[in-house]
Design a protein around this nucleic acid. Structure first.
Lengths: 114, 114
DNA sequence: CTAACGTATTGACCGATGTCGATCTATCGG
DNA sequence: CCGATAGATCGACATCGGTCAATACGTTAG
């Protein structure tokens, strides 16, 4: 998808309908928690752009199932991708996904000389 | 503030701490609802960049107190600003606020040649 | 095969949040 | 003043969502 906050589809200057808004809100929801923001931040700043789940529990200060849960939310939202290597799980950011969120926000810039 | 997902403050390649993540998550939380995404979208696409609350209830398909509530959330988050004119309330987007969210996401781009 | 280990899943608990009807507040028209 | 109107606030309700202990699952080591 490529939902933006205005001028999408056929009609210029058209606001999002409920379905588009729901889709976009889902994306924001995935980022609407401090634990997940930190996870994303840590993964993004990790060497080689990836991080092992085993290295994420301690810095987050939350129980292992909780961290696993948040990682799943980010993966389900398409913001992170998971790769299993042996008994470890490695996570990477999906730049295109974040770019699409940015694009949505671009569309809220001041009216382009109406 | 200007919280970003990496390389902020003194240390390069540093992830967000809990406080910074909480602050950023609050911003995402304000956008993590379809009703609020639509409100932002409608206001952003309105003539002159502003919209009267009286014109927001019907298109949202929610009760007036509900709409008022969501508008307040967006205002509290600094994403919209409210101006009372007579007995009407007008809302405008705060572009700098959305720009700061965009900046946060910029920081998650692929590692800059480590 | 079995034990140990890293993760994911389940179930329960509880606070946060979206929703609406009713009401309160403020402003305008007469 | 008085009634009407726009909007915010309150109270109640139901659902959602973050959290953890316990446990299940899959992989590696011996």
């Amino acid at each position: 998808m490529d939902a933006i906050l205005r001028c999408c589809g056929t009609d210029r200057g058209r606001a999002l309908d409920e379905a588009q808004a729901t889709e976009l809100a889902e994306l924001f929801k995935a980022l609407a928690d401090p634990a997940r923001v930190r996870l994303l931040s840590i993964v993004a700043t990790s060497e080689g752009g990836e991080a092992c789940a085993c290295d994420l529990v301690e810095p987050l200060g939350r129980a292992q199932p909780t961290v696993s849960h948040h990682l799943s939310v980010l993966v389900d939202a398409g913001i992170l991708e998971r790769e299993k290597r042996g008994r470890w799980a490695w996570y990477r950011v999906v730049p295109e996904r974040l770019a699409s969120i940015r694009a949505s926000l671009d569309a809220t810039d001041p009216a382009p000389t109406a």
